[in-house]
Design a protein around this nucleic acid. Structure first.
Lengths: 146, 146
DNA sequence: CTGCATCCTAAGTGATACTG
DNA sequence: CAGTATCACTTAGGATGCAG
């Protein structure tokens, strides 16, 4: 296959009457893409991963998610609430108390995200090794080139 | 539970000798967090989702992923290659031809990400509805407040 | 405690031009 | 074709102060 015959490479999608057919809607303005951008967000991911069949207060979440600012946590929770993934409960007491918990919809997403986190935990060693190998290879090549 | 007794809310983690124990390492400098940020990246997600048991050329990927710039695609592929998720093959022909495909490691991640994409596709209606409801509620509240 | 508004910096991103 | 380099711009994100 390395001989120069590159007629039709293994393509994920396929071409039909000169029109590309893909396995999924990849348009930038596609709804799925937008939602994906939202839930694949750095902070959203962590919040959903943390909110597993339990409710947490604003400050608790902030303490658990090291490095998140008040601003980003508030904004992230707003977005998740708007998307119907997180339920926000305000208790009329002083000082104010607000609990956050996953909605049924959010719980469904949780298991998927949890799988992503688990995968990462299980393979972080391989990724770290790959990075080291890559960096070494690049260094060796620039060495040879110089 | 709405009566003001908020001794110990449903907490995801738990406290042991005054030391918080969480279900996962949430430190900002944690390896898993960094990897998660990388693979949960907007473009990385799409590239991995697209590269399913098939190889694609640079331009093919660019065409499939609507809205991605040459710069971002190149950078994303670099990162994925460095992380050992994507294999880059350069064919010594003119004009140059470079194929990208998932490594076994990347293939494992693919199934997880695919689940995320599938979930999004299946629930985009509910999310859209939640957003509409939320916006309507907010509008009504600001109406009442005014 | 919760969370919004403001300001400001750093990082991400796109457009363009250029190289192997 | 497959990139890299540069520049200009937009956005994300942190710090701070204040309100409910």
């Amino acid at each position: 296959m390395e001989d120069g015959t590159f007629e039709s490479p293994g393509n994920c999608g396929y071409t039909e009457n000169g029109f590309d057919v893909t396995l999924w809607d990849s348009r930038a303005d596609c709804e799925v893409r937008q939602i994906l951008d939202r839930i694949a967000d750095k902070w959203s991911l962590l919040v959903i991963a943390l909110l597993d069949q339990c409710s947490m207060r604003f400050t608790e979440l902030r303490r658990e998610i090291d490095g998140i600012s008040q601003r980003m946590l508030a904004r992230t929770l707003r977005q998740l609430e708007r998307d119907g993934l997180v339920k926000r409960t305000v208790h009329p007491v002083v000082p104010p108390r607000v609990d956050y918990e996953l909605t049924p919809l959010g719980a469904g997403l949780h298991s998927t995200i949890k799988a992503l986190v688990t995968w990462t935990e299980e393979h972080q060693g391989q990724i770290a090794a790959a990075r080291t190998a890559y960096d070494a290879r690049v260094a060796a090549e620039s060495e040879a080139g110089a």
